[in-house]
Design a protein around this nucleic acid. Structure first.
Lengths: 256, 256
DNA sequence: ATTGTGTTTTGATGTGGATCAAGTCATTGT
DNA sequence: ACAATGACTTGATCCACATCAAAACACAAT
């Protein structure tokens, strides 16, 4: 949980804005997310090949899905701007938020296993993604070894992240989970150049609760308690961390 | 959970037995696990290349680890025989069983992300694994497209499996989790040609509990209750499923 | 056979977080 | 400006599972 890092491999810079799907060529080479997403040490000619790979851009409005469970898998999506949740739903209607993703991270890895998606990826704010046709990624990666290596690391990182969530859900108490969640968000904001100690939550209490395996009322009560204990300030979606070491102490359950 | 499938990509047949690490060449091409592990439609010459890739075999005694958290990542391990748990441990001593793996499945994917392992892989019975040097796998897979595709599916399948475990831990009740666990084990035994309704558990109640996010006493009580309800017979590690539809009903929480 | 060690079962009691409920606050559409 | 709708907070109560405890059982070493 605490060492979550930027996951995607590729993202592109837009050159102009279209309504839904851009068929314009857009260039990874200019993208300001490049150093988050790309393998390091890639050559200029390799970069040109990547620019050819990623040539669709899609805008996703708040509440819309990039893809849904059951849809055929065709592409991965690098988040250029915005914020997403991924959600697993089963027959009887129960669902589980399996992750939150932000700029520079990659969506769609679940689809590779069976050529169809197994989760929904839903935008929590108006967002923009770069489409990476999967078959082309696979063939291009056989020609650019550093791209392949990087892609494997991204997938493995997702496995490691999910291991941490299993630990969180399996062994931690509600207050520890919420502290871990806030610390993880803080760290990811920070690594993108945003303020580490002050941010707006994009998700509801219910979505946080689903991710952390607790009810929205419990999330709300814990936010109130953290505020009373001077660990944070909360007001609706706005959060300011006032005592990050205090949160870390809770996360490491140094508190009883 | 319910659609868990065989995960590894490669496993080999032994030609003779050595004590710890075999330096003999062993052949995937003869392995009886081949159809579980290998990409389908591989050519004979490609198979020869695979045989060159996998040339170490290691015996792991019960209680020993194939690898431990923090060790440098060098290889993946295909389970030839035996049974493993993977375990994530954090500073304060808490640990979480993140999975159970059996013949034909692949260990070590966690290590790719940071070039060192993040979990322990511990044998729950005397076992044997085939070592797949990772750098060689990566380079060979650039030459055999179906191998690369297969490897990606294996990694993605692990992500999907972990999503299911998150659902299990985040939303299900203890009895539902245990039913899901038994059904999953049954299905995996069956897909390996073993009896689907009768098997020996390789793990303790505590390990089951850790995986399922509950205490060993709760696991024990639920086994007793399932037995009283004529769903299963249990005696220590032996389990026989008497009413698989009853278990499925619990799993789908058709029971209140 | 015997002792030690780890595993499992079962009972009694406690509690963290769920559930139920009511009211407040924010946001959006008209 | 106002109504409608969804998000959030807070309180009262309940219950699923944890915790604590003790005994039975299984297996290995000597």
């Amino acid at each position: 949980m605490s060492n979550h890092r930027v996951t995607p491999i590729i993202a592109v810079e837009e050159s102009q804005t279209l309504d839904t799907v851009s068929r314009l060529k857009v260039a990874c080479s200019n993208c300001n997310l490049r150093e988050l997403c790309m393998p390091i040490g890639i050559t200029n000619s390799e970069m040109d090949r990547l620019d050819e790979l990623v040539y669709f851009r899609r805008k996703i409005k708040r509440g819309e899905a990039v893809y849904r469970s059951g849809e055929p898998f065709e592409a991965l999506y690098a988040i250029r701007t915005g914020f997403f949740k991924t959600r697993l739903t089963v027959q009887d209607g129960r669902d589980q938020v399996t992750g939150f993703s932000m700029a520079g991270e990659l969506l769609g890895l679940d689809g590779i296993s069976s050529d169809s998606h197994t989760v929904d990826a839903v935008a929590l704010e108006d967002s923009e993604v770069c489409m990476i046709p999967y078959s082309q990624l696979e063939s291009l990666s056989t020609e650019i070894p550093s791209l392949l290596t990087h892609f494997h690391k991204v997938m493995s990182r997702e496995i490691v992240r999910e291991n941490s969530v299993m630990m969180l859900l399996g062994t931690m108490r509600a207050e520890e989970r919420l502290a871990a969640f806030l610390l993880n968000l803080s760290q990811r904001m920070h690594s993108r150049g945003y303020a580490a100690l002050e941010f707006h939550l994009r998700m509801t209490r219910e979505e946080i609760g689903s991710y952390l395996g607790m009810k929205l009322e419990t999330v709300s009560r814990l936010f109130s308690r953290f505020q009373a204990d001077a660990l944070i300030e909360v007001e609706q979606k706005y959060v300011r961390i006032r005592d990050i070491d205090g949160l870390k102490a809770i996360y490491a359950h140094h508190t009883h």
